[in-house]
Amino acid sequence: MTVVVFDVDDTLYDQFVPFELAMTHSFQDKPWIKDMDLSNLYLLFRHHSDEMFPATVSGELSLEDMRVYRIQKALKDLGFEATDRKCQLFQDRYFYEQNRITVHPEMVDLLLILKERRILTGILTNGPTDHQQLKLDQLNVSTWIDSNTHHISESIGYSKPDAKAFQVVANSYPESTEFLYIGDSYDNDVIGAKNAGWQVIWLNKYNKKLTQEMVKPDVEVTSYKDLAVNVLDLLQEE
Rank of each mutant, 00 (worst) to 15 (best):
M1D: 11
M1H: 15
V3P: 06
V3K: 14
D7F: 01
V8C: 08
V8I: 09
V8M: 00
D9C: 01
D10G: 04
T11Q: 11
T11K: 10
L12W: 05
L12P: 07
L12D: 01
L12R: 05
Y13S: 12
Y13L: 09
F16S: 02
V17P: 04
F19Y: 06
A22D: 08
M23L: 12
H25T: 08
H25D: 07
D29S: 12
K30D: 00
K30E: 13
K30Y: 04
D35Y: 05
D35V: 10
D37K: 09
L38M: 14
S39G: 09
H47W: 08
H47T: 07
H47C: 01
H48D: 15
S49C: 15
D50H: 06
D50M: 08
D50W: 03
E51A: 11
F53K: 03
T56F: 03
T56P: 00
E60K: 02
E60A: 04
L61E: 01
E64C: 01
V68K: 10
Y69L: 09
R70D: 02
L75T: 00
K76D: 05
D77M: 13
L78H: 00
L78V: 08
E81N: 13
E81A: 14
T83V: 03
C87G: 04
D92P: 02
R93L: 02
Y94P: 02
Y94R: 02
Y96Q: 12
E97P: 02
N99M: 12
R100I: 03
I101A: 07
I101D: 04
V103S: 08
H104K: 10
E106N: 09
M107D: 01
V108L: 03
D109R: 13
L110R: 06
L110T: 13
L111S: 06
L111H: 04
L112Q: 14
K115R: 14
E116A: 06
R117H: 09
R118C: 04
G122Y: 11
G122D: 14
I123V: 15
I123S: 14
L124C: 05
L124S: 10
T129Y: 08
D130F: 14
Q132Y: 07
Q133T: 15
L134K: 15
L136W: 10
D137R: 07
S142Q: 11
T143S: 05
W144I: 06
D146F: 01
T149S: 14
T149W: 15
T149G: 06
H150A: 10
I152M: 00
S153H: 10
E154C: 01
S155G: 02
P161R: 12
D162M: 12
K164S: 02
K164N: 11
A165F: 07
Q167M: 08
V168Q: 02
V169H: 09
V169L: 08
S172F: 08
S176G: 07
T177G: 08
E178H: 11
F179E: 00
Y181I: 07
Y181P: 05
I182Q: 09
D184K: 06
Y186R: 04
N188S: 13
D189M: 00
V190R: 01
K194R: 10
W198V: 12
Q199G: 09
V200I: 03
V200D: 00
L203P: 05
N204T: 03
K205D: 08
N207L: 01
N207Q: 09
M214T: 10
V215F: 06
P217G: 01
E220V: 04
T222G: 09
S223E: 15
D226W: 05
L227G: 10
A228W: 00
V229M: 05
N230P: 04
V231L: 06
L235M: 15
E237M: 10
E237T: 13
